[in-house]
Design a protein around this nucleic acid. Structure first.
Lengths: 101, 101
DNA sequence: ATATTCTGGTTTGCACTGCAAACCGGTTTG
DNA sequence: CAAACCGGTTTGCAGTGCAAACCAGAATAT
């Protein structure tokens, strides 16, 4: 049955904003910085920050902090676990919904 | 870009349980009753009840209540709007995630 | 020098929401 | 008549997403 597949989806990905973040990061070929993500997704800084923290805690993204020109620079990239969970999400949704076209 | 598609998804569907409910209902060829849904999805009655109420409020399912053998019988079916939003969900997720395989 | 503003985020407070427990009207059983 | 049962609904609480408030350091202004 379809519904059982859906339950295997990583719970943290079952949020439109976080899914959008992960979609963006998984497409990117190099680390994405805070500001870019912010512009792309149109969130507040606080909102983005807490989402990223949660995604890191779950091992779906990796956060790197450096200083560049004396300013802090935080970049994010999708971990292999993140990619795996994104793939899993797509497969689960397709198998659950495809047949009901 | 991919993420903008995701924002068009009906917010009510962005919940794993409700998506599972809708997947089930959209597959069913006849109305599904409370008990069947309950067994299929393994929820508590209260939980299922509130989800169905919300889905009805958003016009994604239709609720019918009748009496059969002196007992109440509530059945649910997917509205055409519900089917449309499910299709939209699938399309949006595919277009956002497919390219990041 | 020091005050003000800007940059790059993080933490806090609140409003909302999913969940299960408690509840409720009616029915069957003891 | 009481007790258990059926088919759900409502309530209370715990968890969470959001923006406002906050914070440290750098640039700019006075």
């Amino acid at each position: 049955m379809g519904s059982s597949e859906l339950l295997k989806i990583h719970p943290t990905l079952f949020d439109r904003v976080r899914l959008a973040i992960m979609a963006h990061l998984s497409l990117a070929k190099r680390p994405v910085d805070f500001k870019s993500l912010l512009a792309e997704l149109e969130l507040t800084r606080g909102n983005l920050s807490t989402h990223m923290k949660k995604l890191e805690e779950d091992g779906l993204v990796q956060i790197d902090k450096t200083f560049v020109e004396r300013k802090s620079r935080t970049t994010y990239c999708c971990t292999s676990k993140g990619r795996k969970e994104i793939r899993n999400y797509l497969v689960a949704v397709e198998s659950a919904l495809k047949s009901s076209l």
